[in-house]
Amino acid sequence: MPDRMRVAVLSLACAALLGVSAPAARAADAKWGWVEGSAGRWLSLPERRAGYTDNGISVELALPPGTGVAYERDGRWKPSGASLAFAVDNVNFSGNEYRRGEAYFPASATFVFGKDFLSLGIRKRIRIFFRELWDGFRPSGIRLTYAWGNHLPVGSMYRLWEEETVFIVAGPEEAGKRVTNSRDLLEDFRAAYDRAPKGPVTEVLVQAERPRGEKGTAHTSITVRFPEE
């Protein structure tokens, strides 16, 4: 085959491949790497609508008791500003924010510093492993979770797991409102661990759940933007 013919055939083949794969690639890209799963161990998925962008996610949920959803995205982001907008009309009164495995937040966003760990020692790590085996595995690394609380007052900050600090950014008295928070991840990390993070944000996790035993459907809306626009 003459060279020019080969080039032409190859070009046609490439064009055909591109033509076929471009819509598929665009469809995959439309999620910008976000992966959906169920939150918690026994929860089924709620009615939901999600919109994805390169720097965030927006979800609208109707959560009957016994449902939950989680959206995860891996990446590498310099810790900076993040904007979190939550709207929740019904909190989880059965949730206990202080107890691992019972902190059922009606809306939360977690920023994971996957290259950063606390020095806990092998025994502690083994204990955490077995606890997570029961309560559900958490992303590894230090985590900052911003949550709509069920009982705690707005502004509460506490260590839920050794490597997870929770900031209550809205509370039960605000049910029915839309609450937007502008957070500086770097400053919050410093406030929680008294030092700067050793690495970037490697994962973002957006969750909503409504445990069995709650009464009525909760309507939740979560919009997370990072870095903040």
Binding site: K177, R178, T180, S182
Partner: peptide, 9 residues
Amino acid sequence: FKVLRRTEE
């Protein structure tokens, strides 16, 4: 100055 929190009712 930045608005750090906004609630809408």
